[in-house]
Amino acid sequence: MIGAHKVQRDPENLLGTQPSLDRGPYEALVSAVLAWKSSHLDDCDHEQIALQMTEHARGLARDVHRHALRLPEHDGRRALAEVVLGDAERILAEPLEATAACVQDRARLIRALYARLDRLAAAFAPPA
C-alpha cells in the first residue's frame, strides 16, 4: 500500500523520535480538568486522560531537564527546575488510577512543568 505507515508506541523514546508538544490543547485540557468540582466521567475516561497527560508530562520534563542543564550548576533557576523535576519524577512514578484525583494531579504537574519551562526559556531568550 503506497503511503501507508505503521505507528509505533515508543514510551521510552528508544527510537529517538519526540512527538511535537502541541501546547494549546493540553493547556485547555489542564484548565478544564482543574475546574472540575466533581467528575461524572467513567473510569475508562479518567484513565485515558491520565495516560495522555502522563505522556505529555514526560515530554515536558525532558524539555525542562534539557533547558536546566544549560544553566550553571549553582544557578537558582536550575535548582528550581530540579525541584519541579523531582516532583515530576515522584508523581509520574505513582501508579495510574482511573480517578479524577489522579487526572488532576497530572494536570497540576503539567501546569508546573510549563511554568518552569517558560522561565527557563526566558533565561535563554535574547534581550528585547
Rank of each mutant, 00 (worst) to 15 (best):
E82G: 07
R90N: 08
K6A: 05
E94M: 12
Q8N: 06
D22V: 12
L29W: 10
E55P: 01
P11L: 09
S31I: 00
Q48K: 04
A68M: 10
C44H: 14
R78E: 09
L14W: 04
E82W: 05
A68V: 07
P11T: 07
A121N: 14
A28Y: 08
R62K: 11
L21A: 12
K37R: 08
Q52K: 11
A98D: 12
G76T: 06
P72I: 10
A35G: 03
P127D: 15
D10T: 06
L113D: 10
L71E: 14
S39M: 00
A88G: 03
E27I: 08
L113T: 06
M1T: 07
L109M: 11
A35S: 09
L14M: 01
V103D: 01
I2T: 10
L85F: 03
A128W: 08
H67S: 14
V84D: 00
A98W: 03
D10Y: 01
S31V: 06
R66S: 13
A32F: 07
E82L: 10
L120G: 07
L14T: 06
L69H: 08
D45H: 11
V30G: 08
D45M: 09
C44Q: 14
W36L: 08
L117N: 12
A57P: 07
P11S: 04
D87C: 02
L60V: 09
T99C: 06
A100H: 05
T17Q: 10
G16W: 05
D43S: 12
W36S: 04
